[in-house]
Amino acid sequence: MLSLKLPQLLQVHQVPQVFWEDGIMSGYRRPTSSALDCVLSSFQMTNETVNIWTHFLPTWYFLWRLLALAGGPGFRAEAYHWPLLIFLLPACLYPFASCCAHTFSSMSPRARHICYFLDYGALSLYSLGGAPAACCAFAYAAYSMPASWLNGRLHQLFVPTAALNSLLCTGLSCYSRFPELESPGLSKALRTAAFAYPFLFDNLPLFYRLNLCWGQGHDCGQEALSASHCYHLLCALLTGFLFTSHLPERLAPGHFDYIGHSHQLFHICAVLGTHFQLEAVLADMGSRRTWLATQDPALGLVGTVAALGVAVAGNLLIIATFTASLLRAPASCPLLQGGPPEGGTRAKQQ
């Protein structure tokens, strides 16, 4: 009978510093794991297992939502629905990319960095179509713009600017991996800014509508936000807090190695935020459809395809450039240190 032996787990002082996580002291996989070892490790309790499954399962949920909506009568035939499809495609891609990154990141130091380069690229595209940087911009430009912004300069430049922001997001986040051992504070600041700025830009229409409704204190017509918009923004704030604070494991190192550390909570909040964002977009689509039908779209089909094409091609080029730089780096490069760290057991940020 075929028997498979689960990979051995290590303590923090037994793996290279490049694999350390802040406040995580045990449950590390072997830093030279094979692809099969990485897959098998997703079925044993390591410090990455919950990270893997909290994005693998949502991938199937968002794929189901995509197929259910796209399969509706006349859905694909109406141009009004296309921005929603552009939103949903990256919403399926980014949790799958993150799942793969966490699964295969223990194959080698180089593999770890490349895995996260791809993860950052997928997340950047989602923000273009969905939440932190660019595809969310397509949906917001189509369904969620304030009335006073429609067909104005900002509305016309909203998607192209978001596409450029996605390139900035990918470039900064990929670069942030290079100084993370020598300057962890700088690395963290760059990575946080890479996703915070596109998020703030993409949600300008929501902030403006929220301010209008808050100031009026009564029914604000087409500017009204659904409860899902508020839940999405709350989840986004929690996601940012968890990413930067590394709580609760920073307060009790070693006590949340397997369940309950910040990156797991970060994943859960991110997925919930995407779910609420989808519900909010659907709410705007339904409640504002008659009104939006009287308005001219900011981008036609050609402009939409062009912006998306630039974002996809640009992100792939950036990832390829950083990957090539990493592959050319000598084995002695601190970023690719292969041996266990000498002294100290402080874990670093991801």
Rank of each mutant, 00 (worst) to 15 (best):
A193T: 10
C235E: 08
A196Q: 08
C220H: 05
L233G: 06
F199V: 11
C230Q: 01
H218G: 09
L242N: 03
L181T: 03
S183K: 10
Y197E: 11
H232G: 11
L200W: 14
L210M: 12
L181M: 08
F241C: 07
C213T: 04
A227E: 10
E223C: 00
A227F: 14
S245G: 06
F178H: 06
F241Q: 01
A236I: 09
W214Y: 14
A189E: 02
A224K: 09
L242D: 00
L242I: 07
L204M: 14
P205M: 06
Q222C: 01
L206S: 07
L206F: 10
P184V: 12
N211M: 11
Q216P: 00
R177C: 10
F201Y: 15
P198S: 07
L212D: 01
N211R: 12
G215Y: 02
F243V: 04
D219L: 07
L225I: 12
G215S: 15
S176W: 01
Y231C: 11
A196N: 01
L206V: 15
H232L: 09
E180L: 04
Y208P: 02
H232Q: 15
L190H: 02
L190T: 01
L210I: 00
L186H: 08
R177G: 03
L186S: 09
Y197A: 14
L204Y: 06
F201D: 04
K188L: 13
P205Y: 07
S226A: 15
G185N: 08
G217I: 05
F195A: 09
Y197F: 15
L212V: 11
D219N: 15
L225K: 09
F241E: 01
P184E: 12
S183F: 11
D202V: 14
R191I: 02
L233P: 01
G221P: 04
S245P: 04
E182C: 11
